[in-house]
Each structure stands twice: as C-alpha cells, then as structure tokens.
C-alpha cells in the first residue's frame, strides 16, 4: 500500500502532507514541515520532549500516527509564539530561568499552556502532576514550577485590571 495524503490544522493553518502508513506526527512535524521545536528524545513516550497539543490536549507526538490527527487541530511551540515578542508563559520561563539547555522547554511550555487553559490558577501539586511526563535534566524543575505559578499570577492580575 502506498503513501496517502493527510490534512490537519497546524497552528491555525491547514496543512496537507503525503505520508507512508503510520508515520508519526513527530516525524511529519520535524522532517516534513520543519517544526523543530518538537524534539525527538526517546520515541518511547517517556521523556515528553515531543509533546504537542491535539485539540488542546497534550499528547506524545512520537506515539501518534499522523493519520490519527486527520482533520484535527495540532499546536506546537511555534504556534504559541506570537509574531513579535513572547507569550506570557514564555516570558515567565525567561524571567524564572526555567531552562538551561532548552531541550525540554518546548514540551514544558505546551504542557503549561494546556494546564493554564484548563485551570488558570493551578496549585503547586497540580503543576507538578501536569509535568509528570516531561523530563528535565538541567533545571531541577523548581524554576519551571515557579514560571508556571508566575504566568498564572500575571494572567490573574491582568484579568483583574479594570477596562
């Protein structure tokens, strides 16, 4: 059986790719579309460096045949980054020193976005739980947790401003 064409929505734009059966979403994003924020750590579902949002929910793109996201919305770090400047979560990562080598960061940021989308004021434990599948070898996690708490506070104070 030959290749087929799969269409999905990537960061708000419809994309069409020609793939061999069961090509992973990770491979399509990195090698066909050049979305290299999606990392390739373990390809075992164990590191979280390939996390993307599918219909707003975090999933490991290394375990996902691209056929399974046909017609769906996929979000990567590229779509979270505004045309100029930084997203609030990215800004908070910068301010809190929440990355060193940066390899885990795209996955950490998409998980943070999904968490804050579901739960704008997460507790520390809820943040820790959300990151259970994302490994960081550098930071010791504390600055990442602080960044998410900071981003949540920044959103709350913005929401509280009149006008």
């Amino acid at each position: 059986m030959g290749s087929k064409i799969i269409t999905f929505v990537l960061g708000g734009r419809e994309v069409e790719v020609m793939v061999k059966p069961m090509t992973t979403l990770q491979a399509v994003l990195r090698y066909q579309l050049g979305y290299t924020a999606v990392k390739e750590g373990c390809r075992q579902g164990g590191c979280g460096s390939c996390t993307v949002l599918v219909e707003g929910e975090p999933m490991m793109s290394c375990l996902l045949p691209v056929e399974d996201v046909a017609g769906m919305h996929v979000t990567t770090l590229e779509a979270i980054t505004p045309a100029d400047g930084l997203d609030r979560v990215q800004q908070a990562f910068l301010e809190h020193g929440a990355f060193q080598c940066g390899y885990c960061t795209p996955g950490m940021i998409v998980v943070s976005k999904a968490l804050l989308g579901h739960n704008p004021r997460p507790t520390r434990q809820e943040i820790v739980d959300a990151f259970a599948g994302n490994i960081c070898r550098c930071t010791g996690y504390e600055p990442i947790i602080a960044a998410v708490e900071g981003a949540a506070r920044a959103s709350a104070s913005k929401a509280a401003q009149p006008g």
Partner: peptide
C-alpha cells in the same frame, strides 16, 4: 497511571 499525555492517549 503514566503521565497526562499518556493518559490522553
């Protein structure tokens, strides 16, 4: 069981 992303799948 597992992590958030794995539980979503």
């Amino acid at each position: 069981t597992a992590s958030w992303s794995i539980r979503n799948m």
